[in-house]
Nucleic acid binder design. Structure first.
Length: 186
DNA sequence: CGGATTTGACCGGCGC
DNA sequence: GCGCCGGTCAAATCCG
């Protein structure tokens, strides 16, 4: 349960013919940016929430980069303290943050999302968008935010796990393949 | 007409 | 206790 890659077989734009191109080469600096920001940016750190990044050795980071591009796993319990209804949801929800180089904010992962909010973020000129999975009974949420520092980078934070099948018809192999190319520089 | 967005209001937690 | 801030709600609006 500590490997979250399965959450994200593919991430891409739905209708664009060309994948998220851009450079997978400067991932290294993306990661370091991420870390640097965590000290002062509004996204991480700051207050309580403290999504502290899992400590990694540089070699591990390298492995990650090799496997999939920048990915940051975060296991910070967002404990919702008050079980508002009947004391059912005191479950801590780990959040998982991903960084992706993309021109567009909407990364379609195969699930259906309904936007339920948008807020301006401090220290960031771009707004953050809040989405909820529309599958009945599914409470998975995600936030999407673009970095001011590098507007080519989109940070997606997932909260919760899907316990249902993907809603999209994934029979479009060509599409999937084109998505996979993103992660395979060779 | 029904479902998804938009957008300002609202709310709870935390720091001062 | 008050005000800021991040997150959510919900009414109005949009769009197929």
């Amino acid at each position: 349960m500590e490997r979250f890659q399965i959450l994200f077989p593919f991430a891409s734009t739905r209708s664009s013919d060309h994948p998220v191109s851009s450079s997978m080469t400067d991932n290294s600096h993306i990661l370091s940016d991420f870390k640097a920001d965590s000290t002062s940016s509004g996204f991480l750190g700051s207050k309580k929430e403290s999504y502290h990044l899992v400590p990694r050795t540089s070699s591990e980071i390298n492995k990650d980069l090799n496997s999939q591009g920048a990915r940051v796993g975060i296991g910070s319990p967002t404990e919702l303290k008050a079980a508002k209804k009947k004391g059912e949801k005191k479950v801590r929800k780990p959040r998982y943050a991903f960084q992706t180089r993309s021109q567009v904010d909407i990364l379609d992962d195969g699930y259906r999302w309904r936007k339920y909010g948008q807020k301006a973020v401090k220290n960031n000129k771009f707004p953050r968008s809040y989405y909820r999975c529309t599958y009945q009974g599914c409470t998975v949420k995600k936030q999407v935010q673009r970095l001011t520092r590098d507007e080519g980078v989109v940070v997606t934070t997932y909260e919760g796990m899907h316990s249902h099948p993907i809603e999209k018809s994934n029979d479009n192999f060509e599409h999937i393949l084109s998505q996979m190319q993103i992660y395979t520089p060779f």
